[in-house]
Amino acid sequence: MSHACHDHDHSHHGNSPAYRRVLWVALVLNAAMAVVELTAGSLAGSLALWADSADFIADAANYAISLAVLASSLTLRARVAWVKGAAMGLIGAAVLARAAWASFHGEPPQAFTMGAVGVAALAANVIVALMLYAWREGDANMRAVWLCSRNDALGNIAVVAAAAAVAWTGTAWPDLAVAAVMAVLALSSARVVMRHASDELRTAAAPAP
C-alpha cells in the first residue's frame, strides 16, 4: 500500500501536492489502458473489454477535470462531480444497451486476449485505487474519483473471471454478463455521486446562519 494510504493529515485536502501527483499518475495510466483495451476489445470481440475501455476513457477525463478544478469553490467542484456522475450513468446505460444487442448477434470473444488484457488492466487499476484510498471520504468530486478507481478494479476481476468462463464454455454469455454487471455498477455509483453532489450544492446555496 502506498504512503498516501497512511497519511491522514491530507486525507480531505483535495488541493494538496500529494493528491495532484496521484491524479497525474492516474490520468496517465488510465489514458494508456484506454488505448490498450479499446484495441484489444475490438480485436478480441469482447464487450467486457469494450466497456472497460470506455470506462478508462471516462476516468482519464475525470482525472483531467479534477486536476483543473482542485482549487475551485465547493460549488464548482460539486457541479463538476454531478456532471461526472451523469457521465458514469450514461456509460452504464450504453453498455446495457450494447449487451442486449450482442445477446442476439454477438459471437464468443477470444478468451486468451480478453484474460491477458484484463490482468493488465486490473494491475493498473489496483495501483490507482491504492494511491487514491486516503482521499476516498473527501468532497463529492474526490469521492467520484475514488469510486471510479474502485469500480474499475472490481470490474477487471470480473473480466478475468469471464475470460476463463468463455474459454470453458465456448460461449459469449460470460462476457455479456460481466459487461451488464459493470454497467449496473456504473449506474449505482452515478446515483451515489450525483446525490452527494446535489447535497453539497444545496449546502452551498443555503443562507449562512
Rank of each mutant, 00 (worst) to 15 (best):
L29H: 05
R21K: 13
C148P: 02
G89E: 03
D175W: 02
A34F: 06
L132H: 02
V160E: 00
A71Y: 06
D152P: 03
A78N: 04
A165E: 11
S72T: 07
P209A: 14
L38E: 10
A97K: 13
D7L: 15
L154M: 12
D199H: 12
A102N: 08
V35N: 07
A18H: 02
H13S: 06
L43H: 04
A54Q: 13
A123W: 10
S103R: 15
W168Q: 08
S42I: 02
W101R: 15
N30K: 15
I127K: 04
A124T: 03
S46C: 09
A208V: 15
A34K: 03
R77L: 06
G45Y: 00
R143A: 00
L154I: 08
R195H: 07
G138I: 06
A111H: 01
A129C: 12
D7Q: 12
L201T: 00
L23C: 12
E37C: 09
V117D: 01
M131Q: 10
V95T: 12
A120T: 06
H8R: 14
A4E: 11
A99R: 11
A167K: 06
M1D: 11
A144N: 12
T203R: 15
H196R: 13
V25S: 14
R202L: 15
A32C: 09
F56G: 05
W24I: 14
I65C: 06
I91Y: 04
Y19G: 04
A204H: 08
Y63H: 15
R20Y: 09
L67S: 02
F112D: 13
G106K: 06
D59K: 11
A206I: 06
D7W: 12
A186S: 14
L38C: 10
A58I: 05
M1T: 12
A34C: 13
H8P: 04
R143P: 00
R202M: 11
M182W: 04
A31M: 12
P209N: 07
L176W: 01
G138A: 13
P109E: 08
M33N: 07
A99T: 10
I127C: 12
R191E: 10
A179S: 07
Y133I: 01
A111K: 01
S46I: 02
A61E: 14
G115W: 01
M142P: 02
C5D: 13
W50P: 03
A183E: 02
A81E: 01
G89I: 07
V69T: 05
R20H: 15
V117H: 01
A140H: 07
A164R: 03
H3E: 14
M1L: 13
S46E: 04
